[in-house]
């Protein structure tokens, strides 16, 4: 009961912080970019906006002083995703990260999904090398976990293979591919045009397709046993789903 109250307060504060960021800080950043920066404005504005979206999650998570068990579950799921990304290092884009992040979101809720995704993006780059792409990857993985958790809670996403595979393929192709291509375009071209954007999407098409296929395959193989294991742990140790 106590936990429940803290939880709702946390969400209320996040909504407030998000509202502040979306209504005041983001437009402010865009105006600042348009008037004060000339060359690198697109990359910086987008980077700052990405950081703003990561901020409320980190703040709420820190504010509510998470228990050791909760920390450990997030750390384990992240470590599995990082190890999975490292294990398939020789196959470009054929990675289980999105699949594991979706499973985390479905099993432990949208916030855990976001944290597992964002942390995986960050930590795995300690092994693969940090770069201007890190915040983009953090955001993409995180938001996929968040959406998976949210849709599952609303009942639109079912915990069965077919539903998860369809969502995983769509999320990997459209959400991850859709955002990361814009990011990579902005990294090396200072201005965007429609043709350049289309060319980036076209050149990224096969990579995104492989990524989506990998996500579907991994979800097909992993989702049932993983979800069962996580359910078992939750029941055995009384971790209440929030």
């Amino acid at each position: 009961m106590q936990e429940q109250r803290v939880e709702t307060r946390g969400y209320g504060r996040r909504t407030l912080v998000s509202a502040f960021l979306f209504l005041i800080v983001i437009p402010g950043t865009i105006l600042f970019g348009v008037y004060a920066l000339d060359d690198r404005k697109y990359y910086f504005i987008s980077l700052l906006i990405i950081l703003y979206t990561l901020l409320p999650f980190a703040m709420v998570f820190e504010r509510r002083k998470p228990q050791a068990r909760e920390l450990m579950v997030i750390a384990v799921l992240t470590a599995i995703a990082v190890a999975g990304r490292a294990a398939f290092f020789m196959l470009p884009q054929f990675k289980p990260v999105v699949a594991i992040v979706i499973i985390a979101g479905v099993s432990f809720g949208p916030e855990a999904g976001f944290l597992v995704g964002a942390t995986t993006g960050f930590v795995s780059n300690f092994f693969f090398g940090q770069g201007p792409w890190t915040p983009w990857q953090m955001f993409c993985f995180g938001i996929i976990g968040f959406i998976a958790g949210l849709l599952f809670r609303k009942g639109w996403l079912k915990a069965n293979k077919r539903s998860l595979c369809i969502f995983g393929g769509v999320a990997a192709f459209f959400i991850y591919g859709g955002i990361i291509n814009v990011g990579s375009l902005l990294m090396f071209t200072p201005s965007i045009s429609r043709e350049a954007l289309l060319a980036t999407y076209a050149s990224g098409f096969w990579f995104d397709l492989i990524h989506a296929a990998a996500t579907v395959i991994f979800l097909f193989v992993l989702s049932k046993p993983m979800l069962e294991k996580l359910e078992r742990i939750k029941i055995k140790y009384g971790l209440i789903e929030r």
Binding site: E62, L71, I74, A75, A79, V82, V123, F127
Partner: peptide
């Protein structure tokens, strides 16, 4: 990574604990 965790340990304690645990867990799983 240890320097990063040291720097941000005060600012985001729970997150940096997760970071250091993940960095420890990956070789352990291997």
């Amino acid at each position: 990574s240890d320097k990063f965790i040291y720097l941000f340990g005060k600012l985001i304690p729970a997150m940096s604990l997760i970071l250091s645990m993940v960095l420890r867990l990956v070789p352990r799983y291997k």
